[in-house]
Every structure is written in C-alpha cells, then in structure tokens.
Write a protein that binds this DNA or RNA. Structure first.
Length: 512
DNA sequence: TTCCGACAGTGGGGTCGCAAT
DNA sequence: ATTGCGACCCCACTATCGGAA
C-alpha cells in the first residue's frame, strides 16, 4: 500500500467530526490492507509507530526538506526506514538520524510529509486514536467490538490483535487469553469530587488508600518475575526489591496489581518526586536501591495459580490477593455498606491523608477487572487546594486552540511587591473563557516574544491544584502540581492575590 | 427528547539518560 | 561539566458524538 493512500485517509478522517464516519473510513482502508501491511497500517492510523519512539523529535523533523513531486513511497518502505532509524545509537547518532529523516522526507510528497511529521511527533490530530481504530477494525473484520476491545486489553496492544484479525478472521480473538508473563492493560480510575459522591454512585463499596507512587503489574511464573508499568514497559531490572518480594510470596504463578512507593525511616511516604526519581534510575540500581528503597503495595490479583480472575467480582479477587499477600504489603482499606455509611469513608479518607497519602480510591465490590468501557467502578478522591493568583503572561495555543491565548503563566505576590511565577496552566477553561481571556489579555499585553505574550499583572484567577512540589525551574523553588483554572476573579485586585508566603505556609512539608 | 459515558485534544512539571557542546 | 533533547512517569479538564434512558 502506498503511503499517500494512508495520508489521504488520515486527512479525510481529520476533516469529519462524526465518529461514525471516521470509523467507516478506517474500516474501508483496513479491508484494503494486505495482511503484511496490516502490521504497519493499523498503528499508523491509530496515530502510533509500531516500533515505539525513535529518538527523533520536533527539532529534527522541523528542518525543511523539498518534497517529492509524485507519491511513490510504500508503507513498508517507510516502516523499514523508521525501523533503521530507531536502531541508530552511539556517537554521531544524532547526525545519522537527521540524515535518515532527510532521506525519508525527501521521498515524501507535501501531504505525506505532514502525515509523517504528525506520526513521529505523536501529534496525528485526526480525532481517531486507539478506540476509534478498534471500532474500525471490528467493522472491517465483522468481529464484535467488545470482543476486539477485550483482546486488545489482554494482548496489551492493538497491533497484535489487528494482525491476527486481518490474517485469520474473528476466530483469532479466542487465542487472546490472560497469560502469566504477558502484561495486560491496567484498569484505571475515574475522578469524584468527594467520597460522598463516590459512595452515592457505587453503593456498597470498599475505600482504599491511594499511594502516590508508580503503578506496577507484577508477574511471577516460578522463578521468573517481570514488573511492568501502566504503559506496560518492563522495569523489572530497576526494582530488585519487587522481584525479591514476589519470589517470597507463597504462590508459584500469579499476576498482581499495585503501586511501588518509597517510605522514609519513619514509615511515611516520600514525595512522588523521590519515588519517581528512584524508579527512573537505570544506572547503578544497587546503590540507589540502598539510598531510596521502594516497597510494592498491592491492591488486586488478576491471576493466581493458573486461575484467571478477571471476570470475578472485586470481593473475590481481593480474597485471593489476601491469601497470597500478607497485610503490610496490601493497601489499607475499609468496607462501606452504602450511602448511609459515608461517615466511615470520610473518616478513612481523613486518616489516610494524616498518614501522608494522596487520597483514596472508592471501588465497587462486584465489578470485574476491566480496562474496557464498563463505566466507572473505581473512583479516586483527592483533596483540592485553591489559590488566587495573578496572570503574568500567556502563550498562544495549538491545534483547536490556534489563535487563542491558552497557557497561562501564574504568579504569587512576593514580599517586595513583585510576583514570583509558580507554574503554568491551560486546563479548566471553557471555549467561552478562552475567547474572553484572549481579548482581555491582549488589552493588557506589554510584550510579545515568540509564543509568549507578557501582560500587565492585573488579572486575578482562581486556581485549583493538587499540591506543591519542589522546582528548580521557578524562582520560589516550588511549583503547583496539576494546576487548573476554576474561574476569573474580576472582583479581586492583584494586591489581594495570594502571596508566596501563604502558599508555602499551606504546605509545611514541602520546602524549596 | 434528554442525559451521560467514552473519546480525543490540550498541554503541565519532574527526572533520567544520552549525545553534543 | 553543562546543556539540549527525547522518553516516560505522574496528571485535569472540556467539547463532542452517539447510544441509553
């Protein structure tokens, strides 16, 4: 198949807003693809590269290359070139990668260049990623969409399932079963604004502490242990403690779901930054493991002794977990009988926060383990802090926010009458707010430099955030975690905004 | 007809590792 | 040694479509 056909469909998909039409367009192309092309075409149209990241980014791709006049590239040629690109390493590799990119781009037409750029930078922006591609694939092969989704969850990738489906038809789906050693997509939680709201939605439920660490899926098959992240990367080698723990548990074959986190000498959780830094270290793991040891804490069991537990209610999965994993290595929890018993949940949340944790996850007692779309049976609840800050500058947006001032630079007052920037946010704005702030900030503009428009510090905005963290980037030595706009405070003058001092005082455990 | 779940898009900060300067 | 870049961790929120109620 020619790359130009693919790039053309991608454009068509981007041009329509109707999901049903996107699915129809994708299905048509998938039907055309030869089985050998499917391996490439499916992920490309889902906006991903089969070989993952390449070590090539926006910087290298932005160098202009004269486009080819006529489309001639096949998807298989592109795949071969990108495969070679991903393997380049060592001294001189950046130049070699740039050369290969130039070669590829020079063989592509203008439309193909645009598509390749989006594909490699991960910004396809056609309004159709995995979920829509799954629908298209189901349509093309006449397989039930739910069965395809489940197979994708079990295979951990759309690509594997697509290849099997297109070459063997719908019967191929039955071969995708839960297998110890092969990671599956993890079940995720939605958000609720209070435990009362969460318990109201779920009825009888269990409330578990939410640890601020790294999600892990641990597979043990005899002496072999593998540890995977939320995105299914294999991080076994970085976590010798987890391997040791898994080998000592009284079971030969199992899959457990949990979190790794580092505790200090007093048993209090260290900051996310400390845990993440430790887990991210690949060099001299033995040393960092002594300095910042991590502990696995489990909350679910997907498979025990060859038994697939995915479709069992949570209560039964947890019973299996409890047989296998002793108390301190399980997440603390409490059972709540229903909305009449919210007080139990609230007390548990307060205690959990007191112990230094992030919040809680409220889970339905009878829900199966599912990464598919079965509604929200896990709901996380975290405390939200708010501040009144001053807009110091704003950045022009991209994509659907082109022409709008989007990303706000947020400042708190300092003792000397100035402002210290605490971070940025683009979250929480409605289209109406976006239009309004673009107008208003333009009036206040004093300087424009590339994407950044500096303004007179007059606009006060209420910001919600999850907590403070240390920063080397910002002048106060701290920054807001997950800042988002709540509303503009036109009733407030900048002199009434919060100060750096009050921000720091609200988070005594975080020091610059 | 209205409501609501699922999805895509829009980016945030931090840390690590590697190559280039 | 320091800097720049890319890969991955963590993540919130809104708009929109389309099926469920």
């Amino acid at each position: 198949m020619l790359l130009s056909r693919l790039a053309g469909v991608s454009q068509e998909v981007a041009a329509t807003s109707a999901r049903s039409h996107k699915i129809a367009l994708l299905a048509e192309l998938f039907r055309e693809a030869e089985p050998e092309d499917a391996r490439i075409v499916i992920p490309y149209l889902a906006g991903r590269l089969p070989q993952g990241r390449l070590g090539v980014g926006w910087k290298v791709l932005s160098r202009p290359v004269p486009p080819a006049a006529e489309p001639a590239l096949t998807v298989r040629e592109v795949d071969a070139l990108l495969g070679a690109l991903g393997k380049v390493s060592g001294p001189g590799s950046q130049a070699e990668r740039a050369r290969l990119v130039g070669e590829l781009m020079g063989a592509a037409t203008e439309e193909e260049q645009r598509f390749l750029f989006g594909l490699i930078t991960g910004e396809v922006r056609q309004g159709a990623l995995d979920a829509v591609a799954v629908e298209g694939l189901a349509r093309a092969t006449e397989a039930p969409p739910d069965a395809v989704r489940r197979a994708v969850m079990l295979a951990g990738s759309l690509q594997t399932v697509a290849e099997a489906l297109l070459s063997q038809g719908p019967e191929a789906l039955e071969r995708f079963r839960l297998t110890v050693g092969r990671p599956v997509l993890p079940m995720l939680a939605h958000s609720a604004s209070s435990v009362a709201e969460a318990v109201e939605k779920l009825g009888a439920c269990v409330v578990e502490e939410k640890l601020d660490g790294i999600r892990v899926q641990v597979h043990r098959d005899g002496d072999t242990v593998r540890v995977h992240t939320r995105t299914l990367d294999d991080i076994t080698d970085r976590l010798p403690e987890v391997t040791r723990v898994a080998r000592e548990l009284p079971g030969e074959r199992f899959i457990l779901d949990g979190e790794v986190i580092s505790f200090d000498a007093d048993g209090r959780p260290r900051s996310f930054q400390e845990t993440a830094g430790r887990v991210g270290s690949r060099v001299d793991v033995a040393t960092v493991a002594r300095e910042v040891p991590v502990s696995p804490v489990f909350f679910d069991a997907l498979s025990v002794d060859g038994r697939d537990l995915l479709d069992l209610p949570f209560t039964e999965r947890h019973a299996e977990l409890a047989r296998l994993v002793p108390e301190p290595m399980r997440v603390r929890r409490t059972v709540v009988s229903g909305p009449d018993d919210v007080a139990t949940a609230e007390t548990f949340l307060a205690e959990t926060l007191e112990r230094g944790h992030e919040g809680v996850v409220v889970k339905s007692l009878d829900a199966p383990y599912s990464a598919g779309r079965r509604g929200a049976s896990w709901l996380k609840v975290k405390p939200v802090h708010t501040l009144d800050l001053v807009v110091l500058a704003a950045e022009w947006g991209h994509g659907r926010r082109t022409g709008k001032l989007s990303n706000l630079h947020l400042g708190a007052r300092t003792a000397d009458g100035g402002y210290a920037m605490l971070g940025k946010t683009f979250k929480g704005m409605t289209d109406k707010m976006l239009a309004w702030q673009t107008e208003r900030l333009r009036e206040l503009a004093v300087e424009e430099n590339g994407y950044v428009v500096t303004v007179r510090p007059e606009l006060v905005v209420e910001i919600a955030y999850d907590g403070l963290q240390r920063s080397t980037r910002y002048p106060a030595g701290v920054t807001l975690r997950f800042a988002r706009v709540v509303r503009y405070r036109e009733d407030k003058r900048p002199e009434e905004a919060d100060t750096v001092e009050t921000v720091l005082a609200a988070h005594p455990q975080v020091r610059p």
